[in-house]
């Protein structure tokens, strides 16, 4: 009853685009929270890939992995936000530029 074909490419390209947007965000944003947001973008890009390939190969593992990624993202955000909060408390600013105590 249901039958349709969609190009695998469109998902992959979308995913690549999202991923690179995320990369830009991670590289160019100063605020810790914004960096975390960008990381989420990248994770989503990965998820789209996983699900698309899962449908393409008719193997459910991709979906399962997407679920795992979602779960891990939740953990990552929890810890990440806690760190940003800590940075905010210690440096009175959420800017990552100020976190340069490791400067050589």
């Amino acid at each position: 009853m249901l039958a349709a074909d969609v190009a695998l490419n469109q998902y992959l390209i979308l995913s690549a685009f999202l991923f690179c947007t995320g990369v830009y965000g991670v590289l160019a944003r100063r605020n810790g929270v914004l960096v975390l947001l960008s990381v989420e973008l990248m994770l989503n890009a990965v998820n789209i890939n996983l699900v698309a390939f899962s449908a393409f190969t008719r193997n459910i593992s991709g979906q399962v992995f997407a679920l795992f990624v979602i779960t891990i993202a939740a953990a990552e955000v929890g810890v990440g936000l806690a760190i940003v909060l800590l940075i905010y408390r210690n440096l009175r600013s959420p800017d990552l530029d100020r976190v340069d105590q490791l400067k050589g």
Binding site: L2, A3, D5, Y11, A16
Partner: peptide
């Protein structure tokens, strides 16, 4: 990435059906 993807999966289709 786009170049890679297009090159690798250029004509592949995902078939959405009841199965």
């Amino acid at each position: 990435l786009v170049a890679l993807v297009v090159d690798a999966f250029g004509n592949d289709k995902i078939r959405l059906d009841d199965q």
